[in-house]
Nucleic acid binder design. Structure first.
Lengths: 220, 220
DNA sequence: GTCTATATTGTGATAGAC
DNA sequence: GTCTATCACAATATAGAC
């Protein structure tokens, strides 16, 4: 992997300064191995710098792990916020959320497993997730994330345009159906007898099958 | 925690012999901390035995971790196989799978996060999962797990009793909706602004809301 | 089978030269 | 800012008494 280049007489990265390279490398390693399983040495190698430099910039492994977790959380929820808070009608919104997540997670398939594993093993991550989420809700407390989508659901229920259900169940179902197949990909492959090609075909089918399934589920 | 008692002049556990106690303790610790985050010392303390005894029975940490993973996998898939391979009609089966999982995972809420985290971080776990699953399918290869349920779905589609969909999508959707809220409990709480009580109420609601949702989704 | 004590390695972190 | 060298301790694993 070529990640350094001589520019104007100094050794410089193609991807930015050292701090950024370290963060990128840490992102890669922490997401694949989890916080407990990650090694500072592996991150240093991946970034092409010395181990000591990680501590110079981030003080400790825990500090670096926190930075990565928040960065991953922002990436995941940023896109969701963007789509969910638009003023599109409910049905369009469902289609777009499905499309965005299937495409995004198809390119970063380790992210759901990482986030779930972290939340399961490190209770303090829940707090950090709340703080990250709050950034997208103008600091409102309790965090009213996805409030636009949720009021839309409540109104559609009152108007009889969708089946009666709480907005919590609506959101939980939508997120479950989008994210779980990536988080549990090896599990699904084992249970359904699929190989890598089979899973790709499954995902391709899902792009149209999932919106149909969900929209039919909420039809009155 | 009292876990030893003098019986007939020898020190004996209330919960069985030492090997069993170690496995129980390891189960507890590995599921909560993940394989990389678990410590042999903590398992020994939890089992009430010396650290060296873990190696006497299981040779290495990796050996103990494998034993626990397979045990957890058997527990999860055993119940699912039992319900899915019964001869109940499809709608009843859906209701029972939902009921079984919401009840079972309500009592072992760390299990989904553990399995997903393991699969995400240790590629060799996928292979071990396949082997475990194969135990429930009489060694058929490729594993035809849930074959009873899947043919039932295919027949219902052909008969027009449910909407057209592949049995893969059917199973993936059902499992996603049952398992994900437990795996991502802290995430859902953050995103929906729920505390512990709120989540309990959400689960209680879900016991009736989820079967309704799913059955409506597959209605023609 | 179970323990105490110890070996051995792995790993996060720091000191100090450049 | 970045490196080399090293420390300090945590954690797995083993030897050997009982």
């Amino acid at each position: 992997m070529v990640n350094t280049e001589t520019i104007a007489g100094t050794t410089q990265s193609l991807d930015g300064d050292a701090e950024q390279r370290i963060l990128d490398a840490a992102h890669l390693v922490f997401v694949r191995r989890g916080t407990a399983g990650a090694r500072m040495q592996e991150i240093a190698d991946e970034a092409g710098v010395n181990k000591a430099l990680l501590h110079y910039y981030f003080r400790s492994k825990s500090g670096l792990a926190d930075a990565v977790f928040k960065r991953v959380a922002r990436g995941v929820f940023g896109r969701l916020t963007e789509v969910a808070s638009s003023d599109a009608p409910l049905e369009d919104k469902v289609r777009r959320i499905v499309a965005v997540y299937l495409e995004q997670l198809g390119r970063a398939p380790f992210v759901p497993g990482y986030i779930i594993g972290e939340l399961s093993q490190h209770p303090e991550r829940a707090q950090q997730l709340m703080e990250t989420v709050r950034q997208f809700t103008d600091g409102a407390m309790p965090p009213v994330f996805l409030e636009g989508l949720r009021t839309q659901v409540d109104e559609a229920v009152r108007g009889g345009r969708i089946r009666p259900m709480t907005s919590e169940q609506f959101v939980a179902n939508l997120v479950s159906l989008c994210v779980f197949p990536f988080a549990a990909r090896p599990l699904l492959c084992a249970v359904l007898g699929m190989d890598a090609d089979g899973f790709e075909a499954f995902l391709e089918d899902r792009r149209t099958a999932l919106p149909e399934f969900f929209l039919n589920a909420i039809r009155p």
